[in-house]
Design a protein around this nucleic acid. Sequence first.
DNA 1: TCGCTTTGCTTCGAATTCGAAGCATGAGTG
DNA 2: CACTCATGCTTCGAATTCGAAGCAAAGCGA
Lengths: 164, 164
Amino acid sequence: MSEPRWLNETELRAWTGFLETSDLLHRMVEQQLREVGGVTTVQYDILHRLNESPEKRLCMTDLADRLVSSRSGITYQVAQLEKAGLLRREDAPDDERRVLAAITEKGRQVLERTAPGHVEAVRAGLLDFLAPDQVAQLAAIMDATRAHLRSTVQLHPPRRARSR
Amino acid sequence: MSEPRWLNETELRAWTGFLETSDLLHRMVEQQLREVGGVTTVQYDILHRLNESPEKRLCMTDLADRLVSSRSGITYQVAQLEKAGLLRREDAPDDERRVLAAITEKGRQVLERTAPGHVEAVRAGLLDFLAPDQVAQLAAIMDATRAHLRSTVQLHPPRRARSR
DNA sequence: TCGCTTTGCTTCGAATTCGAAGCATGAGTG
DNA sequence: CACTCATGCTTCGAATTCGAAGCAAAGCGA
């Protein structure tokens, strides 16, 4: 094992800044959504993904992948949202195993009601505060990193061979 | 209420990219630390903060603030780490209310053992993948945003007046 | 000094998350 | 078709997180 390449001053600022900023932003957005009431960040994200999907519905696994969450976590949250009437579960027509989550009219209304404040919070916390070229830089950096990590990180633990 | 200023294409990429990247990075780092064994990301961060502190110890509230975590969450994790012998609780000499968490030799060894792999993971996931000027841009953006959010976001819920 | 507020931490219960294991369907191969 | 593996989802228990409430020490004004 050779000497580890420690982070220089700039790299350290980039890394720790990224971590801390992401926590702070997450908290800020969570607070804002809580005040308006109704949904958490995770639930907002789920509804948003469903709504932007062409069919207005997605199966559980696709949801989990897009939200970078575990499957069981999605099962839980979809159950919560179904109880609240913001989405509906449906059987997929072509594959009996799949379960589709479809946003309901009520869910769409929640989105419509909370989206403007949400976007304002995002602006106030991040975008409006940066210079336009910085926003562009951030977009480029995040685009590249996201694609890179998508192909690197394994979202779900590998399934071990069935016993016997 | 006027028409909300929706995000343009670049802003959207910056925002969603940031969210997704932060989740992916978090997962990647968590995986790496888990494989090496011993500590979680939160615990690594706590030990790291203690170790970089000049006195090698911090009080609970300072820890919570730096880690952008709730006080009760810190109480829990510090208890875990104390059980594992990686830190020690001490009474603050000047203020009876305060509890100091001081990293132990064993805790320092855990840091020393896990730090190289941790840094490598950070490089592999983010830094080595970006151009040098992008790292500098990211550092600048995160520095500014962090400071901005630090003065904006309230970490702890406001304490309501005592009843009676 | 007395009384009230503030501050630091912990305890408590509720909510959320994860991975492992289990169940059912689909796909592929002989 | 029979058999086996792969895939999609849920259930389960454990771990972690949070906010509210409570306790104790410190600060402060009258």
